[in-house]
Deep mutational scan, measured.
Amino acid sequence: SLTLTVRGEEAVRRWYKWAQAHNLEVEVETHGDEYVLHIK
């Protein structure tokens, strides 16, 4: 499992696509303009 902090929706989309390509689940938490992604 992997936890990432990114800024901006574009980065979130990029990681989301990456995770889907690897059959992984993604949980997204929003903290202001930062997003915490939990990839499992």
Rank of each mutant, 00 (worst) to 15 (best):
G32I: 04
E29T: 12
R14D: 10
L24K: 05
E9P: 09
Y16I: 15
G32E: 07
T5K: 12
E27L: 13
V12S: 03
E29P: 01
R13S: 10
E25N: 10
A19E: 00
W15M: 05
V28K: 04
T3K: 11
L2M: 12
R7L: 10
L24E: 01
V6E: 02
H38V: 11
W15S: 01
E29V: 12
T3M: 08
G8Y: 04
V36P: 00
V36F: 07
N23D: 09
K40S: 13
K40P: 04
Y35S: 04
W15H: 02
H31M: 11
K40F: 14
A21I: 11
R14E: 13
L24N: 02
Q20E: 12
R13F: 08
A19Y: 02
H38P: 00
H38R: 11
E9L: 14
G8H: 06
T5G: 03
R14S: 10
T5S: 07
V26E: 00
R14Q: 14
G8W: 04
N23Y: 07
R13P: 01
K17Y: 10
E29I: 11
E29D: 07
S1F: 11
T30D: 11
L37P: 00
D33V: 06
V28N: 02
V26Y: 07
Q20A: 13
R7V: 13
V12A: 12
L37Y: 00
A21G: 06
G8A: 05
G32N: 07
I39K: 00
E27T: 14
Q20N: 10
V36H: 06
E27A: 11
E27Q: 11
H31A: 09
L4N: 02
E29S: 09
E10M: 07
W18Y: 07
L24Y: 14
K17R: 11
A21Y: 12
L4I: 15
V26N: 00
L4A: 05
H38D: 02
W15R: 01
V28C: 04
E25K: 11
E34G: 07
H31I: 12
T30A: 14
E34Y: 15
R13D: 13
H22W: 07
E34P: 02
E27C: 05
V36N: 03
Y16A: 09
T3N: 07
H31Q: 10
Q20I: 14
H31Y: 12
G32R: 05
G8S: 14
Y35R: 03
V12R: 05
T5W: 06
V6K: 01
L2T: 07
E34I: 15
V6Y: 02
H22A: 06
E10W: 08
A21L: 13
V36Q: 05
T3F: 03
L2I: 13
I39Q: 00
L24P: 00
K17T: 11
